[in-house]
Computed example of a mutant assay.
Amino acid sequence: MTTNTWRKYLTDYNEGLGLVYERFVLNDFLERLRQTYAIRSVLEAPLYGMAGVSGINDVALARAGVQVTMVDDAPERIEGVQRIWAEDLRLPADLVCIDPSAWGRLPFPDRSFDLTWQWAGLWYIADPAALLRELVRTSRNLVFVAMPNNIQVGYWMRKLVIDRDFFATHDETWTDIGRIRRILEAAGVEIIEEGVLDTPPWPDTVMPANEVLKRLGIRSQALEEQFTGEGWRWSTMAYYLGQEPDLRARVMQYAWLDHAPLPWQIKAIWAHHRYLVGRVTKGAG
């Protein structure tokens, strides 16, 4: 998430095709975990990491009756997320605001949640290793961690061409899934699943298509019109609110590679995210 762009999306839910696709794929993955492991409570910390609208990654779980808790370190953002859940979604969620220095001291007892997780947020916080250990401490069963895939072409396009300032100010070593795995295992987690998620046919640039064209120096009125205006509106919230009930069907027609029965190592060439799922062992934390 580009610094401070989150403010726009607290009221403007037009995220773009790539983000809507990413959310639907994540929804399916979380639903599989819920059904397989009888998950009844989750902690998402931090609630930001994915671009677009902050704090709506757990909506499908909440609608399935799961108790949702989310943590943030920005009072303005958490206030906006609270409004989205209370006024628009009308769903219960516990939102907790902490100091930016407190990710290693989450205000929850040991073993409080069936699942603790984060999506693409480690490089935004001061002490990612401490957060990972807290995700282990507060889970009674599963820990799920996902970060951007640092070998796919969109990552390198973003790093070398269109968003170099981001990489100058964020520690990309937290995209090293091996590093994350070692920290989780040292904290007492047995990795039970590893793979990739979010593998659409377009590269992962983490910004709207028209903005990518501008940063690449491509000036085309025809292309700009194609990726802007009312004809190019993509909103997960519109689906959640029943305004576009066919949105999922339209978006998931691009999921053929995500659903292809290929080894994840092959998909990793193009997938936008890598992930680990681990089970907390006795005596962990």
Rank of each mutant, 00 (worst) to 15 (best):
V71K: 05
T236D: 01
G217N: 06
W85I: 09
D72V: 05
G278I: 13
G80Y: 09
V20G: 01
G52I: 10
L33H: 03
G80W: 04
G154M: 10
A260P: 10
A187L: 12
V71I: 15
F24H: 10
E193C: 02
V251S: 01
S54Q: 11
W119G: 00
P100M: 05
P109S: 10
G285Q: 12
A60C: 10
Q243F: 03
L223V: 12
T3Y: 08
L257Q: 08
I191Q: 06
T205G: 00
F166G: 02
I78G: 00
V59F: 03
L30T: 09
L122I: 06
V251W: 03
A209E: 15
G217K: 07
Y155R: 02
R248Y: 08
D58I: 00
T281Y: 00
G195C: 11
L241M: 13
K282H: 07
M1Q: 09
E31F: 03
M50R: 10
V81E: 05
Q221Y: 04
R32I: 04
G231P: 01
N14Q: 15
Q82S: 13
V81Y: 03
L262Y: 10
N149V: 05
Y239I: 08
L131F: 08
P263L: 06
T36S: 13
G80M: 07
P208R: 06
L115S: 01
P263T: 08
H272L: 02
R32M: 14
Q35K: 15
L132N: 09
I218A: 07
I192S: 01
G55I: 14
D163G: 14
A268N: 09
I191V: 15
E44H: 12
G278R: 04
P75V: 11
T205D: 06
A238P: 00
I183C: 10
P245K: 08
A186S: 15
L122G: 01
N14P: 01
T228W: 03
A45K: 11
V145E: 05
Q226S: 08
I56P: 02
T175I: 01
R140F: 04
E87T: 10
N210T: 13
N4I: 12
I191R: 02
R215A: 05
G121R: 07
A51R: 12
F144W: 13
G52E: 09
D198C: 14
M1W: 04
S139P: 02
H272N: 07
S41Y: 08
V66K: 02
